[in-house]
Amino acid sequence: MNNSNYSDPNDGESNIQGALSAVANTQDKKAFELLFNHFSPKVRAFGLQRFGQEAQALELVQETMLLVWRKASLFNADKGKASTWIYTLMRNLCFDMLRKKQIQKEDPVSDDLWPFLEEEQTTEDDHLLSRHLLTHIESLPLQQKQVVEALYIQELNQQEVARLLSIPLGTVKSRLRLALAKLKAILEIEHD
Rank of each mutant, 00 (worst) to 15 (best):
L20W: 00
E119Q: 09
N76Q: 15
Q159I: 10
Y152A: 05
S130N: 15
K173W: 00
H127P: 00
W85K: 08
M90A: 15
L89C: 05
I103F: 15
D78Y: 07
T26Q: 10
S21N: 09
L98F: 09
A57K: 01
S7V: 08
V61S: 03
W69F: 13
L117M: 15
N76V: 08
G170Y: 04
L134P: 01
I189V: 15
R131P: 01
K184T: 14
N5T: 07
R131M: 13
N5M: 11
K105Y: 14
Y6N: 00
N3I: 06
L60R: 04
D96S: 11
E155R: 15
Y87H: 07
Q144V: 01
L89R: 05
L165F: 14
L140H: 05
S40T: 13
D111F: 13
W114C: 02
L98V: 12
L117S: 07
Q121D: 03
V161R: 04
L98W: 09
L48G: 02
E124N: 05
F95C: 04
A31T: 07
E118S: 11
I189E: 09
Q121P: 00
V147T: 03
N10W: 11
C94D: 05
L66C: 05
K105G: 04
L35Y: 06
K81H: 06
V161S: 02
K81A: 15
H38P: 01
L89D: 02
